[in-house]
Structures are given as structure tokens and as C-alpha cells.
Nucleic acid binder design. Sequence first.
DNA 1: TCTGTATATTGACAGTTATCTATATAGACG
DNA 2: CGTCTATATAGATAACTGTCAATATACAGA
Lengths: 113, 113
Amino acid sequence: MNRLDKAFAALADPTRRGIVVHLARGEASVSDLVGHFSLTQPTISSHLKVLESAGLISRRRVAQLRPCKLETEPLIAVTDWLEKIQEIWEGNYQRLDALLAELKQAQKEERKK
Amino acid sequence: MNRLDKAFAALADPTRRGIVVHLARGEASVSDLVGHFSLTQPTISSHLKVLESAGLISRRRVAQLRPCKLETEPLIAVTDWLEKIQEIWEGNYQRLDALLAELKQAQKEERKK
DNA sequence: TCTGTATATTGACAGTTATCTATATAGACG
DNA sequence: CGTCTATATAGATAACTGTCAATATACAGA
């Protein structure tokens, strides 16, 4: 699995997107997060593992706490990919527009005869 | 699976992202696509099914051909979600900036004494 | 050192996924 | 009608996923 694969896959789960939303507001410990999703602690821990392996979060260690922090780099990579698609798509439209302009011109020429 | 789940999951596979890139340039038939990925036709068809069920493509019927067309609505939904995260994240920084400004101010006051 | 709290790991289970081969369907054309 | 081409469907298999209960680890504080 490459970087984009992992990022998209990590974001495909609603619980994990919820965690991301949460962490966008600032660091949170595992038990903070457990409190927000009616899932068990091991389940949340496993989601965090997925997010971490996708580079979407990092973890510090503070006593027994493991504060999780959002890392934006993979989010930027995903955004960039989406932008690329949009650019290709729009380039495509531009070509279509050019084609339509040509057709209109051709019609004008036709009418002159 | 809700809309975002499906969109992210559909984009988590490199072959499917490849198909999306391809279709961003314009419609293509199933066999066109098969030619570009060293996978069998049934495999490509199954990826197309996933993309279609995520709303990322639509299909017409032209004789035996089934031209596939990119639909941008789910891509926009994904982009919007990412923007939302970025906004929350930036709001967070703004709060942090405000906090730092407060601290600096407090230090100044301290020095005056 | 014992106890409590925070988190990770393990093992199980049911469901999903990506892929293939083989086969079916649907339309075009002679 | 028979044949070719394009696509879909079915069935198999191996790998992966989300979830849980049970247990282990790691640290803090008395």
C-alpha cells in the first residue's frame, strides 16, 4: 500500500474521520477519544494504529497518556491528488470549449456562402 | 456505508484512482481501460462497479460499448470534507496564535513592574 | 511494593475485498 | 441464424477489516 492508498483507506471509515475531526481541534488522549465514540478502547486503539500507519496522526508519551496529534501532510497529499484530477478535468473542458468555438466559427463561415 | 465512506473507499485503490485519472480526460469504454491496466476484464468491470456505486462514474450504452464518464460530485464532497478539516485546524492555530499573543502581552506587563 | 489508571496486544469471528478462470448475455454484422 | 466483439456475472480463494472480550504492559502514586 502506498501513501495515497493508506490515506484514502484510513479516511474511508466514519469513526476514523470522526477522530480526525476531533484532533483537528487539538491533541487528545486515547481515553478522550473513547469517550466520544461508543466503541471499546481496543477498537479505538486499533483505529489509531491505522491512522498512525497512514501518517495522519502522531503520538507523544506523557506519563501513561498517549496524546494524539493530527498530521496534515497526508491530508495535503490527498488534496493535491484531487486538485490534479480537477485540473485534468478542466483542461478537458477547455478543449471542449475550443472545439465548440471552432464549430461556431465553421457555422458562421457556412452562412456567408 | 454513507456517501463519503464509499467515495474514500473507492479512491483507496490505485487501479481505481488510475481509472479516475483516465476518465478525467474524457469518456472511455471498458476495453479501453482494460488496455491500460494489466488486469483482466472482469477485474476492471468489478472496479467500475465500485466506482459507479460510489457515484464516481456513470455509464451510457452505445451498441455493445459501455462508455464510462467521470462524475465530479463525490470528488467535490471529499474536497469539501478536507476543507472543513483544514478550517477547523486553522481555527485551532488562530486560537493558539491568540494565546501566544496573550502570553507575550503578559510578559510585557510583567517586565513593567 | 502494591494498586489503580491508561493504553496496547492477542485471539476470535463475521464480513468484505481484489483477483482469477469460466461462463453468460447482448448487440453487430454477414 | 451463426459468429464475433464487448461486457457482465458467478464462483473460488486468499488476504484484509472492524469489532469484541480477555489479558498484558507501563507508569504514577501511596
